[in-house]
Design a protein around this nucleic acid. Structure first.
Lengths: 318, 318
DNA sequence: TGGCTTATACTTATCCTGAGCATAATCGGA
DNA sequence: TCCGATTATGCTCAGGATAAGTATAAGCCA
């Protein structure tokens, strides 16, 4: 077995792979979450990890700036994929995709860049539950899922499929869980209800609304949305997406935009204030109907003061 | 700028990289967390991602089984690293490490495998706070950290360093946060207090207790411990580490072993029971001092029934 | 039997959360 | 000027979750 320990560290042609860096770059503008896209809105900014890059992150920064002209601020790694099956082609060498989530503010895309800010719900219409289930899906979604479940061979499998659909999509009086973005996408893919599945060989049927993307990009986007929806609950990352000064309602609208659902206004404010995440600037928001709101800014100090925990264990003091 | 969109997809030698798969394989035996190691306890199971591997996970499974004889059960991806700086050598092509966390139960390592189960606190003595700070560290740790902070050039930097140390290590009456495993390791590395830092070029000093590992492996292990400590709080993953039947105290001891701190017995039981994670087997534990305890088993049903949410947003019903 | 050990049931005070009511401040017409 | 629409902001209240501790049960062993 000692032989197994020896590893072929040389870049032998046999085990060489290419690594792609992919960015899910998010902004929120006027209550709508946006993502940076290239190639006619059908792809995320991305490019190969090259010898010249000092690190994965610096490689990603280089590609995003080259393709979009947008500098990268807050960044975190999402996931690393390498499924040859998904992209077809069983002959070519392995290609790995290392994906990242970036948070910024929308600004004008510079001259000469073929990049755009696109609303992320164009790609995932079923994820926006702020006004209930969108009309374009209300009729079809559940019935298509039921049809998929029914098409299984045994009744056991049928029940299993339906249970999975019901849990992920909040059917049969179950709670909607906004974090299951990836699970819902994977299910729709397996059910052959989205263009990517048909492209990859599923039986051609009428698909569910929602713009497709090249390769795995919509799956990567789903991963990014899921991560962000989970993270805003226990880390103050929303502020990366806000302007320097904002009203509490603007903050709330941003959170709602990301989560795809509405929050209770008064309780939201209590939460924000008790955590001391913001402080008043002293200024008052103009240009709005209704009573003018105070402007707040993020207290950057909290990041240094607290290492926010999030315990769920009944710890003992002794 | 259109040129920037074109990507060199061919496996040109220039952008070829090698990808290593690394496994943090965890078990808990009699209240001690263990990890699978090879190479005289100085390395994690790992090997290159090869052309023959169908996917990243299957490649990992192949390597772990070849090196340890142990089958891989529950697996999740941890992180992907590619810092050329860390491993020295600015000339060689990029090498990427894709790391995974695996959960199993300890069993005998088969004949002919140079693999061992090692206690994970041998690598991170400062992470075990079940009996307070270990005696081997009580005197040194805080003073070494203070010395490091003092050695900064400006008083501003000194304060910054000490604040960072105090937050991550729970000094100055701050709370100990067991999830900051990676941050603590990174800080010790930067402070030159562990062998890996000296190996990589830091000034040679007396280091803090704790076994080093090759390359980035102890950093990867820190990442795995941190992930697991966070995850046991909101997903029922502990059960992957438990035998089929167990007493509530054994379960508690396992959680404590992973978290590195003690929990309140009665409240722990209430938490487990109210979440309906377990059910009685009807049997009673023998071979123990004191009143015999009921045996429980994990209710696998919960995984299907619930998509455990973990909301921290004040959602609105309307 | 009494003492040691662990299991398990119950109590208490406090805090957090969801939900809703009430009032304040501004604007645009009637 | 007053009313209605709209948003901001303060406050209450009930129910549930949590931290901590008390009390009792059930084994073993000397």
């Amino acid at each position: 077995m000692a032989g197994a320990l020896k590893k072929d560290r040389a870049t032998g042609a046999a085990n060489a792979v290419t690594a792609d860096l992919v960015a899910v770059l998010v902004a929120v503008t006027e209550g709508e979450p946006k993502i940076m896209t290239i190639a006619n809105d059908g792809a995320l900014p991305s490019g190969p990890f090259e010898f010249a890059h000092r690190s994965l992150q610096s490689g990603l920064r280089a590609w995003v700036e080259a393709q979009t002209g947008h500098p990268l601020g807050y960044v975190e790694q999402l996931y690393t994929f390498a499924d040859r099956g998904r992209t077809g082609d069983a002959k070519s060498p392995h290609s790995i995709s290392i994906s990242y989530l970036g948070l910024t503010r929308e600004d004008k895309v510079g001259q000469g860049f073929e990049a755009h800010w696109s609303g992320w719900y164009e790609y995932f219409p079923w994820e926006d539950r702020r006004a209930g289930l969108p009309a374009s899906l209300a009729k079809t979604l559940a019935s298509r899922l039921r049809a998929w479940a029914k098409s299984a061979e045994t009744t056991g499998l049928q029940r299993q499929r339906w249970q999975r659909a019901a849990i992920t999509f909040g059917l049969d009086d179950r709670e909607w869980n906004e974090e299951l973005v990836l699970q819902r996408y994977e299910l729709l893919y397996e059910a052959g209800l989205i263009p990517e599945a048909v492209r990859d060989g599923a039986a051609a049927t009428t698909v569910i609304p929602g713009k497709p993307m090249t390769g795995d990009h919509r799956r990567i986007l789903a991963t990014g949305i899921a991560r962000l929806r989970a993270k805003i609950k226990y880390r103050p990352v929303v502020f990366e997406l806000m302007p320097a000064e904002f009203t509490l309602l603007q903050l709330q609208r941003s959170v709602e935009a990301l989560a795809g659902r509405l929050v209770h206004k008064q309780n939201f404010r209590r939460l924000i204030e008790q955590q001391q995440l913001v402080e008043e600037t002293g200024a008052i928001a103009t240009e709005a109907v209704g009573r003018p709101a105070k402007l707040f800014r993020f207290r950057h100090g909290v990041l240094a003061e607290r290492a926010i925990a999030g315990t769920k264990l009944p710890l003992s003091r002794t």
